[in-house]
Nucleic acid binder design. Sequence first.
DNA 1: CGCACACTTGAACCCCCTCAACCCAAGTGG
DNA 2: CCACTTGGGTTGAGGGGGTTCAAGTGTGCG
Lengths: 243, 243
Amino acid sequence: MQVQQFRPVVIAANAGACGVCNVRRQSVCSAIEDADLARLAEASTTRLLAKGQSFIEEGAPSTDFFNVTAGTVKLYKLLPDGRQQITGFAQTGHFLGLAVSHTYAFSAEALEPVQLCRFSRPKLRAMLDDFPALEKRLLETACSELAAAQDQMLLLGRKTAKERVASFLLSRVKDRSQCCQFNNRIHLPMNRLDIADYLGLTIETVSRTLTMFKRARRIEIPSGSEIIVLDYAWLQQLAAGLY
Amino acid sequence: MQVQQFRPVVIAANAGACGVCNVRRQSVCSAIEDADLARLAEASTTRLLAKGQSFIEEGAPSTDFFNVTAGTVKLYKLLPDGRQQITGFAQTGHFLGLAVSHTYAFSAEALEPVQLCRFSRPKLRAMLDDFPALEKRLLETACSELAAAQDQMLLLGRKTAKERVASFLLSRVKDRSQCCQFNNRIHLPMNRLDIADYLGLTIETVSRTLTMFKRARRIEIPSGSEIIVLDYAWLQQLAAGLY
DNA sequence: CGCACACTTGAACCCCCTCAACCCAAGTGG
DNA sequence: CCACTTGGGTTGAGGGGGTTCAAGTGTGCG
């Protein structure tokens, strides 16, 4: 486990930028009317992160909230001996830092070059007080994350390795289908270790399971970070536990 | 797996009852001012459930929301072949049904005689529109549940059986300490199968681990549903993965 | 008393982990 | 240009933690 340097780059205050932000409609910011975009822009700043840079540390005071505007982030928790559990991957549009507590409940690290919108706690608080629609939107976000977390608990507690990997591939296909048209070609910004730490497995089991799928002609693996789903229905059955 | 009958008992509309509700201050209802309690009482009805009765079914339309006012409830998800994952236990004061989706993401069943406050979706929506403080409170609730879910993912994905059982016992001690004074005597309203399905283990492993703790003089088991924690610090170390 | 049910205990097995070697592509430097 | 290194990924062999299957032990309740 490498020590992460903590040197995010602050580009600029978002003066005027929220109006031209192309991810606004897919994020919580869509709750803010066009007329109030100035307030939103004033409350946020932009950060650029390189791959591997950490920007939320579990246990640290939760002074900031973030909106991912480009790239992919991993959210994870650690045990003292280094065991890691990735609780989720956050992509474009994802809001980070939902926490009633004043310390972060998880850590976050960029898996690829990432762009973030940063809100300080007081400024977010002020925005929430002034725009109830934003609070409603955050509640919706929290609820859907809660549902995803419950799905993941089912996966971690009760699914076999094959079922886990199949579920993971399907979730990647669905994620991709939301932004682009349906596409059976998956890009994986995370490495095998991250996949393993997300699925509660080891790197070897993930690798073995993927090659098993490949040999069964259910997927193709043109490169380490690219996977093509050949038999979507089969993966669905498997992910649902129907063998 | 037994088929649950779906026959909840509706006692009465809560006309006036919210004012004397002794769990209001520990629930989301504390967000409502005394002056507005009439609105709250009008929006809700009370239900009594017997042990084993199910009142939320995964996939069914989420028409109602609930507040547990007495007893313990298990929240769970099922795989088609019957594998069960319990995602949490809800006790007095717990709000149920947080879901942006129009179908429930989980099922719920009473583990002992349970009393519920029921809100219909439209009435809750109306309350939320009229009382922003309630929405804030729900968001806080959702956030703390999210944090708990992340803890559980770490447990399910990366902890050993001993660590899981230790974590479970500690969470029970903490739950109990909140309402009563600190007490190392735990009452377990759920049976061994429920504990197993919560921890991602089998009933036998739970039993074996508990007897292991007992033989090591870390706990006592006066009865099947009672456990006395003798060595709190040891359990803490174990639960944290520090052996 | 005797049945039912929950829990415990024992023995064998197996899925996944651990450990180790190997492959391969991308640097890197002499 | 090529030897060497480095890091991610794959593959193989063996072992172990937890499951499975099965029997035994309460314990409450008719």
